[in-house]
Every structure is written in structure tokens, then in C-alpha cells.
Amino acid sequence: MSDERDKSPRRAMCAAVLTLEAIAVALSVPVMIGISDIRPAVALPVGLGVALACLLVAGMLRRESGYTLGHVLQVAAIALGVLAPLMYFLGAIFALLWGTAYGLGRKIERERAAAFAEYDQNQAS
């Protein structure tokens, strides 16, 4: 039963968003090079760097600092719009998904904690 209590819906949802965001950002690199005429020497390290950061932060979500970095990554993804204007839109979509996953995940965690506390109290009686 304690295994079920340790599962974090917020972590799972936020990690899923970051993983999908990493894929989308990595796929934006050819767009930056081909359509936006950004030099590969700029597009590759910036685009793939943000994509890699998304994956690394997804693995860091066991600590609260990982969520802070996740918020920062949303700003970085939107800022990629400077290189490829479509990223303003795509970054905003992922920021919205991140915010929803984060907020909904926190709500679920609070409700689960209350339910487990009530269950424990009923078991003790």
C-alpha cells in the first residue's frame, strides 16, 4: 500500500509533457535550418540543447527544484520563437500543457493525501 502512496501523478504528467516537448523541440531544428534559415551551428546546439534539457529535467522531478527548472524550460521553449516563429505558438501550447499538468497534478496529490489521511484515521478507530 505504501507503494501506491509514493506515486506522484504530478510527476508522471509533467514528465510526459517534458518528454513530448523534447521531441517537438528536437523536430523543430530542421525547421529552423530549412525554413527560418538559421545556421546549423546555431540551430543544432540551441534546439537540441533545449530538447536535452527537457529530458534531463523530466528525470529530476523527484525534487521540487525540478519543477522550477520545468517552468524555466517553458520560457526557453517560447523564446525559441526568436529563431523559428512557429515556436512562439508551439512553446505556448507546451507551456499551457505544463501548467495544466502541474496544477492538476498538485490538486490530485492534495486530494490523495487527504483521502489516505482519512483512511488511516478510519483504520486506527
Results as ranks from 00 to 15, higher is better:
Ser28Asn: 15
Ala115Glu: 15
Ala84Glu: 11
Leu73Trp: 11
Val46Glu: 08
Phe94Asn: 08
Ser2Ile: 15
Leu90Lys: 04
Lys107Arg: 14
Ile93Phe: 14
Ile38Ala: 04
Ile35Asp: 05
Ala26His: 03
Leu55Cys: 13
Ala114Ser: 13
Leu27Tyr: 01
Ala22Arg: 01
Tyr119Ile: 14
Leu83His: 10
Gln123Cys: 02
Gly49Arg: 06
Gly47Arg: 11
Ala76Met: 12
Ala53Pro: 03
Leu83Pro: 13
Gly91Cys: 13
Val57Lys: 00
Ala26Ser: 10
Glu109Met: 04
Ile33Gln: 02
Arg63Ala: 15
Lys7Asp: 09
Ala114Pro: 01
Arg63Gln: 15
Ala16Glu: 04
Ala101Phe: 01
Pro85Glu: 05
Ser125Tyr: 15
Glu64Trp: 07
Glu118Trp: 07
Leu55Ile: 11
Leu86Cys: 01
Ala117Thr: 03
Val75Tyr: 12
Gly105Trp: 07
Leu18Cys: 12
Ser28Ala: 14
Ile108Asn: 02
Glu111Gln: 12
Ala58Trp: 10
Pro40Cys: 10
Phe116Met: 10
Glu118Asp: 11
Pro9Trp: 08
Leu73Cys: 09
Phe94Cys: 07
Ala15Ser: 14
Leu104Gln: 06
Arg39Pro: 02
Ala115Gly: 10
His71Thr: 08
Ala77Phe: 06
Val31Ser: 11
Ile93Trp: 13
Tyr88Ala: 01
Leu52Val: 14
Pro45Glu: 01
Val82Tyr: 07
Ala77Arg: 13
Leu80Cys: 09
Gly105Asp: 08
Tyr102Ile: 02
Met60His: 01
Asp3Glu: 08
Lys7Gln: 09
Ser28Gln: 15
Tyr102Phe: 13
Ser125Asn: 15
Val57Thr: 14
Gly49Lys: 05
Ala79Pro: 06
Ser65Asn: 03
Arg112Asp: 14
Pro9Asn: 08
Gly47Ile: 08
Lys107Phe: 07
Leu90Thr: 10
Ala114Thr: 10
Leu104Phe: 06
Pro9His: 09
Val42Thr: 14
Ile108Arg: 14
Met87Gly: 05
Ala53Val: 00
Gln74His: 01
Ile33Leu: 04
Arg62Val: 04
Ala58Leu: 04
Gly34Lys: 13
Gln121Asn: 15
Pro85Met: 07
Val29Asn: 00
Ala79Tyr: 10
Arg5Val: 06
Val42Ala: 03
Leu56Asp: 00
Glu64Ile: 05
Tyr102Pro: 04
Ala114Val: 13
Val50Thr: 01
Ile35Glu: 05
Ala114Cys: 03
Leu61Tyr: 04
Glu118Ile: 05
Arg10Ala: 05
Asn122His: 13
Ile78Val: 12
Val17Pro: 06
Asp3Arg: 10
Ala16Gly: 02
Ala95Val: 02
Phe116Asn: 10
Ala92Val: 03
Leu97Trp: 10
Leu48Tyr: 14
Ala16Ser: 05
Leu56His: 00
His71Leu: 09
Glu111Ser: 11
Met13Lys: 11
Ala92Ile: 06
Val25Cys: 02
Ala95Phe: 09
Phe94Thr: 09
Gln123Ser: 03
